[in-house]
């Protein structure tokens, strides 16, 4: 993990601590909670797309597995929440392996459709066999660790963003490890990495598993916050929304996922006053941001900062 990223993580931690203290409004903090949940999935998709070059339109499937597994285990069997969240992550990881192994032969649009199909199949399965069927089910216990219950919005905000920080730290370590370097080689040229003796298959599976586990964690956090889930929250549209977050924020940088998730979560809230025009305005803003930002907000900002710094540090 390099110096800039460590610094950025520290800044993030400071912001996390200060937001609830400064704002004090449960509404703003609730937006923060959902931003954090979305950020978890977006980070996973960032690693998958930006570092391994694999596209996925099936993240909602893992998100749904995470939500349903931990919600069912806690609601119907009364098991401790953290245990169930971990169990859900393991289930999602298995699902990711099952999806990844045959999908490795596919690329580009074909891979997109394969992951899309996976997500939709999970959604149909939840509709058909999930507890509650299409109506979903409620009264899911809130997140608790032993006796401490995260029943206020502020405590949940800290819980979710705590997870985001941990996930970020883990991810930075991962992409700077040997595996991470191998991943970048893979993104550069699959043929060359094969020739260098990299086990491309194992790598791709590993990345799929990591992104699925993040999505699953996000799903569990969602279920234990809203305390009601139904399959309609875990559809293709959510997968596309996450993709949008990652692209707007910047696919080549993990921070892009975080920033994109926050922007895309806040945007509809800002547009509430447009009422029936909000869809139109939302679409226009997305289109213009995509056209102006291109490689994403975060890479653009980094480039600008480097340009400003450039004259000072002549030879970087």
């Amino acid at each position: 993990m390099n110096r800039d990223n460590s610094l950025a993580v520290l800044v993030l931690i400071a912001v996390i601590i200060f937001v609830p203290l400064v704002s004090g409004s449960a509404y703003v903090i609730t937006i923060g909670v959902f931003s954090g949940i979305n950020a978890l999935i977006a980070i996973g998709l960032c690693i998958l797309m930006g570092y391994a070059g694999q596209v996925s339109l099936g993240q909602a499937g893992f998100y749904g597995i995470g939500a349903y597994v931990s919600a069912t285990l806690t609601h119907h069997y009364g098991l401790p929440v953290p245990l169930c969240v971990a169990a859900a992550m393991i289930v999602s990881a298995f699902a990711a392996v099952i999806l990844a192994v045959p999908s490795l032969r596919l690329k580009g649009h074909y891979l997109a459709v394969a992951t899309l199909s996976f997500g939709e199949i999970i959604n149909i399965a939840l509709n058909e066999w999930g507890p509650g069927g299409p109506s979903g089910f409620g009264d899911i216990p809130t997140f608790n660790i032993l006796d401490f219950i995260f029943d206020t919005t502020t405590s949940y905000f800290y819980l979710v963003w705590g997870c985001v920080v941990l996930v970020l730290l883990f991810s930075f370590n991962f992409i700077n490890s040997r595996t991470g370097r191998a991943l970048r080689a893979l993104h550069g040229s699959e043929l060359a990495s094969r020739a260098m003796g990299l086990d491309v298959t194992a790598l791709k599976i590993k990345v799929f598993v990591i992104s699925a586990a993040y999505a699953s964690l996000a799903g569990s956090l969602y279920a234990h916050y809203v305390t009601f889930i139904s399959p309609s929250s875990f559809t293709l549209f959510y997968s596309i929304l996450v993709l949008m977050m990652v692209v707007i924020g910047g696919i080549t940088n993990l921070w892009g996922g975080v920033v994109g998730a926050i922007l895309i979560t806040i945007l509809p809230e800002l547009l509430r006053s447009f009422e029936e025009f909000d869809v139109l305005v939302y679409g226009l803003i997305l289109t213009l941001s995509l056209m102006f930002l291109r490689r994403g907000l975060v890479p653009l900002l980094i480039e600008k900062i480097k340009q400003l710094r450039g004259p000072l540090i002549a030879r970087d």
Binding site: S25, A26, Y27, T30, F228, S230, E269, R272, D278
Partner: peptide, 21 residues
């Protein structure tokens, strides 16, 4: 009137906004 977009997440946010703001 808040539009919940037929989505539970948006419904939660709408309710929080109405109660808080």
């Amino acid at each position: 009137i808040e539009d919940s977009k037929s989505d539970e997440t948006q419904a939660v946010l709408s309710a929080k906004k109405l109660l808080e703001r």
